[in-house]
Design a protein around this nucleic acid. Sequence first.
DNA 1: CTGTTAGCGCGTTCAA
DNA 2: TTGAACGCGCTAACAG
Lengths: 340, 340
Amino acid sequence: MSSQPASMRDVAHRAGVSLSTVSRVLRGAPGVAPDVRLRVQRAADELSYVVSRNASGLVTGRTGRVAVVVPFLQPWFFGVVLSGVSDALREADLDMLVYQVGETRAREGWTRALPLRRNSDAVVTVSMDLSEDECHRLDDVGVPVVLVGQCVPGRASVYIDDRAGAAGATRHLLNLGHTRIAYIGARREEWSSTSSRHRLEGYGAAMATAGLAPWSVGKATGHAGGELAMGELLSDQDPPTAVLAEFDDIAMGAHRILRRSGVRVPGSISLMGFDNHDAAAVLDLTTVDQAPYDTGLAAGRLTVGILDGKARTDTHVEMPTQIILRQSTAAPRGARGLST
Amino acid sequence: MSSQPASMRDVAHRAGVSLSTVSRVLRGAPGVAPDVRLRVQRAADELSYVVSRNASGLVTGRTGRVAVVVPFLQPWFFGVVLSGVSDALREADLDMLVYQVGETRAREGWTRALPLRRNSDAVVTVSMDLSEDECHRLDDVGVPVVLVGQCVPGRASVYIDDRAGAAGATRHLLNLGHTRIAYIGARREEWSSTSSRHRLEGYGAAMATAGLAPWSVGKATGHAGGELAMGELLSDQDPPTAVLAEFDDIAMGAHRILRRSGVRVPGSISLMGFDNHDAAAVLDLTTVDQAPYDTGLAAGRLTVGILDGKARTDTHVEMPTQIILRQSTAAPRGARGLST
DNA sequence: CTGTTAGCGCGTTCAA
DNA sequence: TTGAACGCGCTAACAG
């Protein structure tokens, strides 16, 4: 209706008080008579007035906004993390700016291109796998940074122990009695993420502890990579009895190939993923849950804490992972392990 | 490094020009000598200075931000739409604010609670299924509104023809020779979305045209609902030979029950979804694609167009749907239709 | 083509 | 407990 949104002056006028009184009331500042406070609040309500963060930020130096930077918005994972971040920020009455910056190489210089500086109070990066260089450039922005899915000493980080998660998953397969356990990873061309490396290391370590040689296949990423890799494994002279995938998307591609090939899961081959993708439940896929919503929530709350001066900027939060047992893993035929 | 981020004054000082010249350069306004422009740009670069949208917005009345309101952030669909919106806004150098407002009933009053007013130049709602009332309250915010996934006369809307999509899907099953075609929908307690209704209507219309009575089962939403509904259908005296689900999540739940029950898909029952969820490919599920990324992109561009005064605020954009044939649908045994 | 000036809407002094 | 004056960083209108 009102072509010109109400300003604080309108509220003051309507309530019959001065500008500063309105400001005090709306900020919840003390030193206002109860009846006056009520009158102002009603006036603001009637005009459906909300404080302009623009104007207040100009003077306080705080924008009331937090920037969240993600490589992509489409994959399941980021939506869930954002959901957690959003809820945490809402608690503190902060708005969420979302920036999608794209693939690693293409994001060259995103730290400068993005209007982060003076337009948000903090930056949360999700699975960005920042280089030392990029981290330093972020410091230049002059706002606190919280890293999600990456653990950097001296910086606020929220992450999972990928090594431990992958090692646990591998042990699950070992405990079932498997010895021929292959690992399918995503090999990117010029770059490999820390998380990728850690998961592979975790698998390798668990295998070594069991006195077994690692057996890993790296193909493209996503479903397609899983299909290719599983194709290769099925053509091996002595195929594995269990397969661990770096993440569920890959496992799902592998699952598809197994289904089409008539290979029984887990009868002939046990298959295990990582992430607890929401489609993993549909496929009855055993996987490792990493609670991305809780991760987002923790990251959001840590950000709020830092902004309130209640948390240090080098806080590390390690989120737990948990194995979700479903129907895609079982003891191999005639195994000795846990099976009888 | 710099504890105090540079301001425009610093840039002006460093370049040896006045504030307005810097402002002109940074806005790309005409009327600046090329060499001066270059000098200013370099100075800004060296100080890694970016304009404060806060301050500029204060005077221009434009914030450089668009608010996107979604009920949830976790479901696959919203991430993909947001991705499209984000790309479109980036083209126009606009930032994206994301608000997650939650379930229908709980979002009572979100239009007032959200600091939309004076904090964004436009609002994009995604699958919000706004009531007349909520629409009017949004008008009060005083910024243009673009509706995604909802078609309201007189308002900017980007949507798909759910009726036609569901009718097409039903015809696909009819053409294969099925006559016992059941429909699984999500029945929410106190409320049903427009899209839900339209899809059911499309199914009903196609069935009627074929001279068949509709057969619809409504359970909870999501995987669980699909499982329940399929359980009911499998206990019927004369089970269907084909099942159309309102959306892929439901179809995936149904698929799981069929798999566990040893019912062959599509051998004994054809199964079809709607949405082209990214997990649908993994399940080889025939479905209806609605290109959510393109929808987001179109909505974002429409928003930009409206802000630039190049598009009307009552523009309607209908996005095409497309049937994606996969392995989950086939002619029934001994059918007459297209099968031979 | 460039510099000067006056606010944009609000929070923060101060003084009353 | 309240109100008036000032300035946050920037743009728009003007003057030069």
